[in-house]
Design a protein around this nucleic acid. Structure first.
Lengths: 180, 180
DNA sequence: AATATACTTTAACGATTGGTACAAAGAAAG
DNA sequence: CTTTCTTTGTACCAATCGTTAAAGTATATT
């Protein structure tokens, strides 16, 4: 088991229990690794584990969503791909956004720059795609912010209410804003 | 110091540290009450404190926002009042929504019905006002869901990014959806 | 076969957790 | 002043927290 293989498991542990709630007992159980192994891979303890997970998530979004939004020759296709990825990644609201959850918790300060960078890059990448779709810069910025916020809200609401269709309904509404 | 006076202080403690993170040390310090007093008022411990806070929040929203939305003779005025209240209550995104934060954490299951009821009533009340504004029922339901989700997302994003104007920008966009 | 390095196991550390017991103190009523 | 009930301060509990250290087992290199 390599360090990189542990990150997704760590991610799920933090998603389920939060940073404080994910005790070493939970983490060892969830990853199958003993305390010794964990501290071998992450000498900095829980803080380093969470930082590594955030980095891993960031890299995934960058590669799968942000770069395509900024670079793709077809911005419309990139935006469609984003919506597919969002539904798949967050499992229609069943799976929370760890970065968003950290933003709401008091762990926010500890990972402030990573949390900010994640959302900043998402909004900027989406705005770039919207501009290339023909929207003027000001409108593109506003819509991008609105949409990224809306996704976070959809996750919150989907977790709050036992309504299987809620997430996709809200996302569909947001998606309409990114079409032209 | 009466039990009712402690609830807002408890609320802030939970907002700042979350349910798990708000240790009794934090709570005693934040409320100025010793363990003895706290367990006198809330024999059920932290769980009862959090439940009481949720009930308190729910009552406030019901009285200040939900009932006006459902009952007011002038739905437009009630909706405007809602937006004023939202900005003031969440302090332009500086103050998080405890119910939303609980929804994202693993404490969700513990307070599932309270969390669900809060959002269900908000959406339903807003939809009722929108219907009385002349929107058809289906559209009103969709917009209400979209808007309540958007508010939660705006809070998340505002906490994630050091941008003082972000919350109000997103809220202004949402507000436009509730006008006709 | 000998050595170095990577990883795991296990046990323990001091600190802090949520919760309890109980007596002292305060307030209200007679 | 006495009695009764409510509110608080303090000491204490077992359990768990994140972290560390030591000893052990693999695996690879020479």
């Amino acid at each position: 088991m390599e360090r990189a293989d542990v990150l997704p498991l760590l991610g799920e542990a933090f998603r389920e229990h939060g940073f404080e709630g994910a005790s070493l007992s939970v983490i060892t159980q969830r990853t199958g690794l003993g305390r010794g192994s964990l501290y071998h891979f992450f000498p900095g303890g829980k803080a380093e584990m969470a930082a590594a997970v955030l980095e891993d998530i960031d890299a995934w979004f960058d590669h799968e969503i942000f770069v395509p939004l900024r670079m793709a020759t077809d911005p419309r296709a990139a935006i469609n791909a984003m919506w597919e990825a969002v539904s798949a990644y967050f499992q229609s609201g069943q799976r929370i956004c760890l970065v968003g959850a950290f933003a709401l918790s008091d762990t926010r300060d500890r990972f402030a720059s990573a949390v900010n960078a994640y959302f900043a890059r998402w909004i900027e990448a989406l705005a770039a795609a919207l501009r290339r779709l023909g929207h003027d810069a000001k409108y593109a910025d506003a819509i991008a912010e609105q949409v990224v916020a809306g996704i976070q809200g959809a996750i919150t609401l989907a977790r709050a209410r036992p309504d299987a269709g809620l997430f996709e309904r809200v996302v569909t509404g947001l998606r309409a804003m990114t079409e032209k």
